[in-house]
Design a protein around this nucleic acid. Structure first.
Lengths: 196, 196
DNA sequence: GTCTATATTAAGATAGAC
DNA sequence: GTCTATCTTAATATAGAC
């Protein structure tokens, strides 16, 4: 039997993959996900449709890659290893500048509830990880007395993440809603040192 | 020119309309909205498909009617004219018992963001009304000293509604999440009398 | 009881998924 | 290209106002 040596993606392939994700991000954000045919993405990249299927099993998986990439960039906004609270407001501000992508995320996070949806696992993991990370950050601040400790860190984390998603939804319906300010107010009140 | 005298719906028609909404609610909740053909709803009601189109312009409008009816019932849970805070936790508890309907709502609230979606106006009005009502309730409690007044009533209202929607989404991905408890904690902290 | 708006359906056009 | 779901049109039956 012949031994197969997996070499991983060539540099060119990795680049092409990124290019596809970037193009798909733009076109999904401007023309919608359902409304966009993969053929359109392929044209803009300058490859045949079949090439897309080489990198992604299907349209849904490409969507997952687009969402994951957006997520990854969001993490970079939390400057220097800040995985917790400090990253939230910058991400909200970025999202304000990208309503199309934000809609894409909001729709996907709701529809991927169906266990049969290709992004179901992605969102399940994402929320679990977000809660875990934020709860850890909050837990440290509770021990140092920066944050009230009469409510469990995980509960506080879930509430902050929930408010983030919910404010985003309200903003999508009314662009006068100030997500960053709302989050700031929540953090100021909810995560203040204990009162009594 | 002949004057037409509209009589409004007959008793039979009003009843049938309700029956259709109720049946659609059940089948959309169990089999999904996209996954359900109107023919299926018609069969369960015991009428022909064309009858549904007599009452609703299209499938999307039927969905809007389903969502509005769910909303109307939610208001009844706020016992005796309570339009504000007191209704939130009971509604969360009701939703826990109806994951299908809750998914339907979550998906619709995100997808109806598109101004071309039939339910767009419905959700836009709904959020505006919810914020207004809750802010009024909170405003009264601020004046009586029951609630901190260093944050605007409308901001607090938006945050509570946002947390409601966001916790619901997290619960859809992880049924261990306790929406009612989370909301209770939020209300306890966010809407406590002012500290200093 | 008559009359007309409302309720219902039959038959088919159109559009989108596979 | 076939099939299925959405929606139209047009025609009939019924409810209820007068």
């Amino acid at each position: 039997m012949s031994t197969t040596k997996p070499r991983g993606p060539y540099a060119k392939g990795a680049e092409r993959r990124e290019q596809i994700v970037q193009t798909a991000t733009d076109v999904f954000a401007t023309e919608g996900f359902e409304g966009t045919a993969l053929k359109r993405v392929a044209e803009l990249v300058g490859v045949k449709e079949a090439t897309l299927f080489h990198y992604f099993t299907g349209k849904q998986e490409l969507l997952t890659a687009v969402l994951a990439e957006r997520d990854r960039r969001g993490r970079e906004l939390g400057s220097a290893g800040e995985n917790g609270l400090a990253a939230l407001v910058p991400v909200a501000e970025r999202n304000r500048g990208a309503p199309g992508l934000t809609t894409l995320y909001a729709v996907a996070s709701a529809t991927a509830n169906d266990p049969g949806h290709a992004s179901h696992g992605y969102f399940q993991d994402r929320y679990a990880r977000l809660v875990e990370e934020l709860a850890a950050d909050i837990g440290h601040k509770q021990q140092s007395g920066e944050v009230r400790s009469d409510v469990a860190a995980e509960s506080l984390a879930r509430l902050v993440i929930a408010a983030f998603d919910g404010l985003q939804l309200q903003w999508l319906y009314d662009k006068n809603v100030d997500m960053a300010q709302g989050l700031g107010e929540l953090i100021g009140v909810l995560l203040a040192p204990q009162a009594s």
